[in-house]
Amino acid sequence: MLKITKLNKAYSNHRALTDVDLVVPKGVIFGLLGPNGAGKTTLIRIINQIIEQDSGSVEIDGKTLSPDDIRKIGYLPEERGLYKKMTVWDQLIYFARLKGLESSEAKQKVKSWLDKLEIAGWREKKVEDLSKGMAQKVQFISTVIHEPGLLILDEPFSGFDPVNAEIIKNEILELKAKGTTVILSTHRMESVELLCDHVAMINKSRKILDGTIREVKNSFRPEVFSVVLTQLSADLPYDWQVLKSEDGLFHFSLSLNGRTPNQALKELMEYGEVLEFKEQIPSMEEIFIHQVKGTSYE
């Protein structure tokens, strides 16, 4: 769907993107991660043709990005905005037509979306009279109204209460099922693990991580096992840090340090009864924090 090659962008006082390569396959939800100021917004703005790259290329469906591709992309920026004095209806028609929809088509689509998200009763209300969650729904509709093949959502769940966040999540999954490619930029790692098929992480203008969730997690297996022992028969070595001991159960984590899991298990058996021996798979959150910290003093 989207292929980005050697993308570079510098502002007068700092580099925003350095040689970023990225491939977003069709029909996936692609998590774009990275701390604030890493270059995510710049990348998104370049894909949206709001700003131009210094060098490198962006291809969509195998062709270099052109102004006509605006119709193919739907963009929900992190900082939302609507015209306060305009009615919901006028506003959505306006955004739809700016994306290139004909008037009749726009009307029909806006109507069906308002019905779908159950806010048809609000069509003649001005945005300033809406609640925040309601305005967010309107904003979401404005992003998807032209049925873009590529949807770029920057922190889509911020400002939603759990009920509405669920509605939006389901809409995203529904769009994905219809073949829409979604780029999801967020800090909320739980939604990344829940929704994303593929992630890439940007830090300090460079891509530092890229792959499916499983690949990323596998590459970050710290080779640490969590262990529960009982009936301790000997003193534990000092470097085994006991996390918790209660009711005769000892919880601790064990680094393999070059041993195979079986070797480690054998060793453990000499100290007591092994009740639990389980590899610690890192959460995306842990990977995120680890990566950002690890690259911050390069």
Binding site: I50, G81, Y83
Partner: peptide, 9 residues
Amino acid sequence: SRIVEILVS
């Protein structure tokens, strides 16, 4: 009001 970000896309 940040409408501009949507507009310029």
